[in-house]
Structure formats: structure tokens, C-alpha cells
Design a protein around this nucleic acid. Structure first.
Length: 271
DNA sequence: CGGTTTTGACCCGCGC
DNA sequence: GCGCGGGTCAAAACCG
């Protein structure tokens, strides 16, 4: 895992001067040739990117950039950058008819339709640009939102609370959003296998896009992490994956076949 | 049969 | 206030 020593830098976005982060894998050339680097938060370790690399990327996933406002045209990524201690989970791709599968990651396999983490895409020719954003400021780094509310606070149709109360909660909830980050990946497949098990709970066609956006939720109990997957409008080859929230557990793959690899730093995936 | 996906409906925030 | 659009729910269908 030489790539564990990935370099990180941040670029200015061409439009809004918003900080873009470029994480350059040591092995990769850093396909993104943008300049204007600036120091990236030290506590933001991308120990996971290497995992991407170490598995099947072999340097293919060479770059990842972080941005606050550089939203793909199809989304409104208007939040501010919130560096997390560790962001990127070990990414792999689910199989797709278009891709060549070079490795198999036993483990994870979910049950029915969506779950099968069978073959995994070789990302050798993939490029991932990592965005990160979130409108969570340090002070409230959420918690009030859901941790207290338990199961009901996130339930939009909950009947127990008065409408007023619900509205207030919504208001709070809007401001106190889970930390989020996203990245884009050049890939034929939509769903990155990041070691966690996801259940799809919605799909939506967003405006000005041909490709629908899919919504996933972590299948683990008590874990409210969500993930959004869509394709970039300008470049359908690019997959935008957005994570929201932090896992309260380790990746499912760890429990199976991954723990022998790098169990300690995998804990950092609880973004 | 249990877990996941699909998909139409609903909710809600936001801009006008 | 209204309409639009994004996000979520939940029942039915699907799948291993």
C-alpha cells in the first residue's frame, strides 16, 4: 500500500474560488493538472484511498479532489467544506455488465437484488475526484439532530409529535446536517463498493439530467449513513457518490475478509 | 422467506 | 400563497 502516503492538496475552483481538494495518490500521476494548491487540513487523513488503490486500482485511482461548492451541475452542492478526520472508505465497484472484474471480494454480499457484492470492478482505468462538503460547522457537528431523537427524529411522517414541534425539528435538522462528502469517479458502474452494505430507498430523476439519482441507506441498525449516487450531467462517465453521516460500525467487509489487511486504520472510516 | 429494489406518492424547503 | 424540485416513504415486486 504505497499509496497510503497519498498527497493531498486543494485547488481553487475556477468559478467560485472555492477550495477544491486534490488528493494525489503517490502512484498516480495526478491526472488533474489544476494548480493553486493549498494546505489541506492535517487531520484529514485519506488512509482509505490507499485501500482503493491497494485493492485493484494499482494507481489507477490516482486523484481525488475535494470541493465545497464545485457541484456537479445536477446537484446543489452548496454547503461548505467540512473536512472529516477520515473520509474515504475503501472503494470498489460493483460489477456491471460493462466492466471487467478483476477481483472478487467475497464477504459483504447482500441478499437480494442489490446486495450482491460479488465481483468487483477493477478500477485500473478509473479516476476519482473527491469532493467533500457539508454545511456542518464545528460547533454543532450535528448530533442534536438524530442522536437524541433516536428513531423518530428522522421520521418525516411521525405522528407522535405536534406539527409545530415537527416543524421546529425540521428547521433544526436542516441546519444541523450530517457531515457529508462526495467524490466523483470515472467508472462504468454506479455503485461503489465501499465495504458497507447499502439498501436503496429511492431514486429520482433530477432536473436537467438524463440519469436518475439513487438514494441508499446503510443497512446496519442504528446507522443512519446515507449515500447518493448519480452520474455527472456533462460527463456521464463520471459517477458522483455522496455520503452523509457517519457510520457507527465498521465496514461489513472488515468483518469478513478485510480485517487482516489493515484493521486499525479502517476505523477511520467512521466518517 | 427474508432482504432488496422499484416506483408512485407524499412531504417540505425554497424561490418567485 | 403557489409551484417546483429534491428527498423520503412504503407497498409491491423481485431475487437468491
Amino acid at each position: 500500500m504505497a499509496s497510503r502516503t497519498s498527497q493531498a492538496a486543494i485547488l481553487n475552483h475556477h468559478h467560485h474560488q472555492q477550495p477544491l481538494g486534490l488528493f494525489e495518490n503517490q502512484e498516480g500521476e495526478g491526472c488533474n493538472t489544476q494548480t493553486d494548491f493549498f494546505p489541506f487540513p492535517q487531520n484529514l487523513t485519506f488512509s482509505s484511498l490507499p485501500l482503493v488503490g491497494h485493492q485493484s486500482l494499482k494507481g489507477g485511482l490516482s486523484t481525488a479532489s475535494i470541493a465545497s461548492d464545485d457541484a456537479p451541475s445536477t446537484t446543489t452542492l452548496s454547503e461548505t467544506l467540512v473536512p472529516r478526520p477520515s473520509l474515504t472508505p475503501p472503494l470498489r465497484h460493483k460489477q456491471d455488465h460493462n466492466i471487467t472484474t478483476s477481483s472478487e471480494f467475497g464477504g459483504g454480499g447482500g441478499g437480494g437484488g442489490g446486495g450482491p457484492h460479488g465481483h468487483l470492478l477493477s478500477l485500473q482505468r478509473s479516476t476519482a475526484n473527491l469532493w467533500a462538503w457539508g454545511d456542518v460547522s464545528d460547533e454543532y457537528c450535528l448530533s442534536s439532530k438524530r442522536s437524541s431523537g433516536g428513531d423518530d427524529s428522522h421520521h418525516p411522517y411521525l405522528g407522535g409529535l405536534s406539527a409545530m414541534k415537527m416543524k421546529k425539528m425540521k428547521a433544526i435538522r436542516r441546519k444541523v446536517r450530517e457531515p457529508r462528502f462526495c467524490f466523483k469517479t470515472l467508472s462504468d458502474v454506479d455503485v461503489l463498493d465501499d465495504g458497507y452494505k447499502w439498501r436503496k430507498y429511492g431514486q429520482k430523476v433530477v432536473k436537467n439530467t438524463q440519469h436518475p439519482r439513487s438514494y441508499y441507506r446503510c443497512t446496519m441498525d442504528n446507522c443512519r449513513v446515507k449515500k447518493r449516487v448519480e452520474r455527472l450531467a456533462e460527463d456521464p462517465r463520471m459517477v458522483i457518490t455522496t455520503y452523509e453521516g457517519r457510520h457507527v460500525h465498521s465496514p461489513s467487509h472488515d468483518l469478513d475478509d478485510q480485517d487482516s489487511r489493515s484493521p486499525s486504520h479502517l476505523n477511520n472510516f467512521f466518517w
